[in-house]
Design a protein around this nucleic acid. Structure first.
Length: 831
DNA sequence: TAGTTTTAAGTTTTT
DNA sequence: CTTAAAACTA
């Protein structure tokens, strides 16, 4: 320990210190980008514990992302170990924690599973039969928004969210069905706790006594329901401190309400406001460019950031022909800087920092844009890492496995049941499924009346299957029994992990035989099927040994279930056909489960973690965090991060901002630009393309509106300045400033962009005709990656005609001539 | 029915 | 261009 007891306060600037030492009234900290906001929160937590004698367990700090929560916990603990006992959670994880303990007050069992958007849609589609999927999606979205705004089905204001007449009824039905199933969606994690706190004064009092300090990070992203939750948790003696930046509010589309921060002083009367306006991250020119864009917004609280780091390089604006050149530009830029840094440090041999790959981040608006960069980086061998787009848990095979696990925990989970009861196909079709589901609720109605409305067997699909299976045709009956056995075996493992773990391997074989035998006994005609079943089971068992490997803890149970159910084999066969890696993904899920206890509680924890922290897969997949790689990331995902060098790509009208953005939404896009730009510490690059490929078609593009909002004296412009852009040649105003008129049609064609690109753009239509004409020996072609070559041979294969090409370089390669998006074009023929 | 082929539709951003 | 939904056939 160096310095006095207060040394950790000495590193703070006066405003930061004021914020840390503030007590009493509610506090709103308006913290600009890079102003040391996390340092203030973590220091404040430590200070409260250390100097104010606050019990760490009575501190609740809420963030919006798990990453932020983890980082905060880590940093607070560094200042004072006891901070580890404070409750640091995301809003949703806090809600789940609350409901596991108090959900019964809202008729919720503690074993609930959290539904994601996909599950919501599945649930809705059982209510909205024969309705187009788009409408179902829309309804799911509206229900989510309604919950964000704390609107129940009976609320008169519901029409503001969705004005369709049927919406209210569907919301009602959705809520009823969800209640019957006993699960919750994301919105419920916030809305239900508020309802319980309002209905149960005792619970509310308990929580207000428990938490004497509540802090909220990224407060600008709180929605109405979250505000209500904060209100309910706050008693007269609760110290409330929220931190946010209205200029960084970028989640309006999912219900974030900027008014929360704008009106905080009114809603929490007598609140103090402290502004943190010293930016320690970016150099002055970067900050200026970022600010000048967001300055175009109205209705801001407004603040002036000062660049504590002083002057630096001007941001570079690069006008490029198309997205291929954009990827090329980024790759070259990054490669050169890394090479230069290596050479420099080698010669000087100083302790100066090398430029690492990890200094660089490429930002884009939509995840789909990462593809071009990935291809180019792969080709050049530039190490990179894509953040957040993996969607690991949205993959079919993973959803299947999770549905299996969910059904294990909650036999009333109709959504999970429908997903997996007939996967792989067991002869249990939609008709059978519907009858079971109906039977489950009917049976409940009957027994419910008898046993005074108990929740017990209401909707229990396992019970319904057992009861009804004998009534079905042999095929369905056998299928149901197989499925029942799989789930029962899984449950057995959970209930008695020690015993079952030992003979798990045996059980898998036994179950298969039992099911097959029963099938044979029940129906002579099923003999062949029974034999088939046996055979496939044997084959599966053999494959599993080399396929899925179970480790420790819960992974034993997960592996077991995934194997027994046939999901593993099903996807393995798919892999063989399509070359996918689904079995590997399942293996990864199994591995992830090994961290949890092999019990019902462990499984619930595992499922909750997966629903609430989807980034877990990313971390697991990428291994260590301190990888020296370039970061590819969406603008949204960059919040809270910083990089020495940032390239903001796709700055074209229609891409960023998106074409349909107006007014409020356009302002949100501006804030998104601001968030992205303020991630950069030393260097900022902006790229805008004259052409962009979308849906496989190349279209002309205009520079982003935002680029005009930066004074050109504050930028270093490279490349051909488009017509009409300040500094470029004069021409008619851009399409979006002219009224009406089809943007794109009225545009003057390929009037800019290099010659090379024109030929490239033309290639699409030409090669279509060429492909129809087919290929023959002697055709000459040009390949994007390998240059000029000639066709030596054309052959047929399963996937279509294959051409063998000899290139000028002497390289010989084979291609599918009819492959979509082929990278080569015919340029002539040798006669 | 299950598994295939054909056709149409569509890309924000995320807890 | 990629994906999902509808339509079709064995």
């Amino acid at each position: 320990m160096t310095g006095g007891a207060d040394s950790y306060l000495e590193v703070l600037n006066p405003e930061q210190r004021r914020a840390v030492l503030h007590t009493g009234k509610p506090l709103l900290i308006l913290a600009g980008a890079g102003s040391g906001k996390t340092r203030v929160i973590t220091t404040k937590i430590a200070w409260l514990i250390r100097e104010q004698g606050v019990d760490p367990r009575s501190i609740l700090a809420v963030t919006f992302t798990n990453k932020a929560a983890r980082e905060m916990a880590e940093r607070a603990r560094l200042i004072d170990e006891r901070a580890g006992d404070a409750m640091l959670r995301t809003f949703h994880s806090f809600g789940a924690w609350f409901l596991r303990r108090n959900g019964s007050l809202a008729g919720l069992d503690s074993g609930f599973v959290i539904y994601d958007d996909d599950d919501m849609i599945s649930l809705l589609s059982t209510i909205m039969e024969d309705v187009p999927k788009a409408e179902i999606k829309q309804t799911a979205h509206s229900i989510s928004r309604a919950k964000d705004y704390f609107l129940s089905p009976d609320d008169p204001e519901l029409a503001v969210i969705d004005s369709r007449k049927k919406f209210r009824d569907r919301y009602v039905q959705y809520e009823e069905k969800m209640a019957r199933i006993g699960n919750v969606d994301f919105g419920d994690l916030i809305k239900k706790p508020v309802e319980i706190l309002r209905k149960e004064p005792n619970v509310a009092r308990r929580f207000r006594e428990r938490f004497s300090v509540i802090m909220v990070d990224e407060y600008q992203d709180a929605n109405v329901a979250q505000f209500e939750l904060l209100k309910e948790l706050t008693g007269p003696d609760t110290y409330v401190c929220v931190v946010g930046d209205d200029d960084q509010s970028i989640y309006r589309f999912r219900g974030a309400e900027v008014k929360n921060i704008l009106e905080f002083p009114n809603r929490f009367s007598g609140a103090d406001i402290i502004r943190l306006e010293r930016n320690y991250r970016s150099t002055a020119p970067i900050l200026k460019a970022a600010s000048s864009v967001v300055d175009h917004n109205h209705g801001r609280l407004g603040k002036t950031l000062s660049a504590e780091r002083g002057n630096g390089k001007l941001p570079v604006l690069a006008f490029l022909p198309d997205q291929d050149e954009e990827a090329n530009f980024c790759a070259t830029l990054i490669e050169n800087s890394v090479k230069a840094a290596k050479a420099g440090s080698g010669a000087v041999n100083s302790g100066a920092k090398n430029t690492n790959w990890s200094d660089w981040a490429i930002l884009y608006r939509t995840n789909a844009q990462s593809l071009g960069f990935e291809t180019e980086f792969l080709r050049r061998g530039i190490p990179y890492q894509v953040v957040g787009s993996l969607k690991f848990y949205e993959r079919e095979e993973i959803k299947d496995a999770l549905a299996l696990l969910s059904f294990l925990v909650n036999p009333r989970d109709e959504v999970a049941f429908r997903r997996i009861v007939n996967k792989p196909t067991r002869g249990v079709g939609p008709v059978t499924v519907d009858r079971i589901v109906e039977g489950a609720s009917d049976g409940a109605a009957g027994s419910g009346a008898a046993s005074s409305g108990a929740v017990n067997s209401d909707g229990d699909l396992m019970e319904a299957m057992r009861r009804m299976a004998p009534d079905f045709a042999p095929k369905a009956r056998a299928g149901l029994q197989t499925f029942l056995k799989v789930i029962e075996a899984g449950r057995a493992v959970l209930e008695d992990p020690a015993a079952s773990a030992d003979n798990a391997a045996d059980n898998a074989g036994d179950d298969g035989k039992v099911a097959a035998n029963e099938l044979a006994l029940d129906d002579g005609a099923a003999d062949t099927r029974a034999a088939d079943g046996k055979k496939s089971r044997k084959r599966r068992a053999a494959k599993e040994q080399e396929g899925l490997v179970s480790g420790e803890g819960l992974s034993v149970c997960v592996a077991r279930l995934v194997k027994d159910s046939g999901i593993a084999e099903y996807h393995q066969l798919q892999d063989e056909l399509t070359g996918n890696q689904r079995l590997n993904n399942l293996q990864e899920l199994v591995n992830a489960a090994s961290l949890y206890k092999p019990s019902r509680e462990g499984l619930l924890e595992f499922l909750e973690h997966i629903e609430l922290d989807r980034s877990m897969a990313d971390n697991a997949a990428s291994g260590n965090k301190d990888n020296n790689t370039v970061t590819l990331i969406t603008f949204h995902n960059t919040k809270g991060l910083e990089f020495r060098r940032v390239i903001m790509t796709g700055l074209e009208h229609g891409v960023f901002p998106r074409e349909d953005k107006r007014d409020e939404e356009l302002e949100e896009e501006r804030r998104l630009f601001y968030v992205g730009a303020t991630r950069a510490m030393d260097e900022l690059y902006l790229s805008s393309c004259a052409m962009r490929r979308m849906y496989g078609k190349t279209m002309p593009a205009e520079p982003s509106l935002f680029l005009r909002e930066i004074d050109k004296s504050g930028l270093r412009i490279i490349g051909d300045i488009p017509y009409g852009f300040p500094g470029g040649a004069a021409r008619q105003p851009p399409a979006w400033e002219r009224d009406g008129g089809g943007y794109g049609n009225s545009y003057g064609g390929n009037s800019y962009g290099g010659n090379r690109k024109q030929s490239n753009a033309g290639r699409g239509s030409d090669s279509d005709a060429e492909r129809k004409a087919g290929w023959r020996r002697g055709d000459r072609l040009f390949h994007d990656d390998y240059g000029y070559g000639a066709v030596m041979e054309v052959r047929d294969s399963e996937d279509g005609p294959v051409v063998r090409v000899l290139f000028e370089t002497g390289k010989e390669l084979r291609f599918l001539s009819e492959q979509q998006g082929a990278k080569f074009m015919k340029i002539g023929q040798d006669e």
